[in-house]
Simulated assay, not measured.
Amino acid sequence: MEKKVQQYYKLKSKQKDIEKELAELRQEILAYCADQGETEKIIGSYRVKLVTQNRKEYDDEKLYNRLADPQVWRLLSKADPSKVASLVKLNVIAEEKLADTFTVKEVTLLQVDKQ
């Protein structure tokens, strides 16, 4: 079992290093595309595409105040955007009731595909 724990530790360390390197490369690629003024570009045998998404970031206190039913708040436990979206989709919460409980954050996703 010690070998498994040791292997797990090594892999987690590698994962941290890989995630750090990926984040750095991502920033460099995003900066390059921004300098070029393009959201889609062929670079060598790879297609780089930037996709912009808007994500809601809820304010826990404002959301709690809008949800009169404590049972609903217990389902959320905290303002998890995907859980809130699911409750809206299921008509447990009316979307209009959530106005002014969140901010919209623009996020750019990086997609790299081999051609």
Rank of each mutant, 00 (worst) to 15 (best):
82 S>H: 13
61 E>N: 03
82 S>Q: 14
8 Y>M: 02
77 S>M: 10
17 D>S: 01
104 V>F: 03
82 S>C: 04
25 L>M: 13
102 F>E: 01
23 A>C: 02
77 S>R: 15
39 T>I: 08
52 T>F: 12
3 K>G: 02
90 L>C: 04
7 Q>K: 01
86 S>E: 13
39 T>G: 08
105 K>L: 11
10 K>H: 09
2 E>T: 04
84 V>S: 10
24 E>D: 11
62 K>H: 05
105 K>I: 15
61 E>G: 01
27 Q>G: 10
94 A>S: 12
21 E>P: 00
49 K>G: 13
84 V>L: 13
54 N>G: 14
45 S>D: 12
94 A>W: 03
74 R>F: 14
89 K>A: 12
37 G>D: 08
39 T>K: 14
32 Y>A: 15
15 Q>I: 03
94 A>N: 12
74 R>T: 10
42 I>N: 15
9 Y>D: 07
55 R>C: 06
69 D>E: 11
67 L>P: 02
53 Q>C: 08
88 V>D: 02
50 L>V: 14
49 K>A: 14
37 G>L: 01
4 K>F: 05
18 I>L: 01
89 K>Q: 11
42 I>M: 15
102 F>C: 03
16 K>P: 00
12 K>F: 00
3 K>S: 08
49 K>W: 05
31 A>L: 15
54 N>F: 12
6 Q>I: 07
56 K>S: 04
23 A>M: 06
19 E>Q: 08
50 L>G: 08
7 Q>I: 00
55 R>I: 11
21 E>A: 01
98 L>G: 06
29 I>E: 08
80 D>F: 05
33 C>Y: 01
55 R>L: 07
77 S>K: 14
64 Y>D: 14
48 V>F: 15
74 R>K: 13
97 K>A: 13
57 E>H: 09
20 K>A: 09
17 D>T: 01
7 Q>V: 00
21 E>F: 00
27 Q>R: 11
95 E>W: 06
20 K>Y: 02
23 A>T: 09
98 L>E: 05
44 G>H: 09
32 Y>M: 15
75 L>Y: 11
13 S>I: 03
17 D>Q: 04
97 K>Y: 09
41 K>R: 10
